[in-house]
């Protein structure tokens, strides 16, 4: 053990280590929304479906999406299950995640 000066005390760090930010990469951003497949991810709260579909309707007038794919999380406070993410990956080019209440 390293010799400590009497005026020093060691404290064990009780904090968690921040995740490595390098390991997360954003998907390439689309340059144009026209004709894309729009995904809607409802967080399962009341009225989340209402606001997401309203937003989709407004955007659809401008961008004429080729498809609007809707899906829902099983819990507002937990991440989507892997199969929901796989569905979105398979069926959508862009996704809007929304919260209602």
């Amino acid at each position: 053990m390293a010799r400590l000066d009497l005026s020093e005390v060691l404290l064990v760090d009780p904090t968690g280590e921040a995740p490595d930010s390098q390991s997360l990469n954003l998907a390439p951003r689309p340059t144009d929304l026209r004709g894309k497949r729009l995904g809607l991810l409802d967080n399962s709260k009341a009225n989340s479906d209402v606001i997401l579909r309203a937003i989709a309707d407004i955007l659809n007038e401008q961008y004429e999406f080729s498809e609007i794919f809707y899906t829902q999380k099983h819990s507002a406070s937990l991440p989507p299950k892997p199969e929901i993410l796989a569905d979105l990956h398979r069926n959508a080019d862009i996704v809007i995640a929304g919260v209602g209440d």
Binding site: M1, D5, S7, E8, V9, L11, D13
Partner: peptide
């Protein structure tokens, strides 16, 4: 013991 992740704090009080 020194392998614990520690910070040195300069104050004996």
């Amino acid at each position: 013991m020194t392998s614990l992740r520690t910070h040195v704090h300069s104050a004996p009080d």
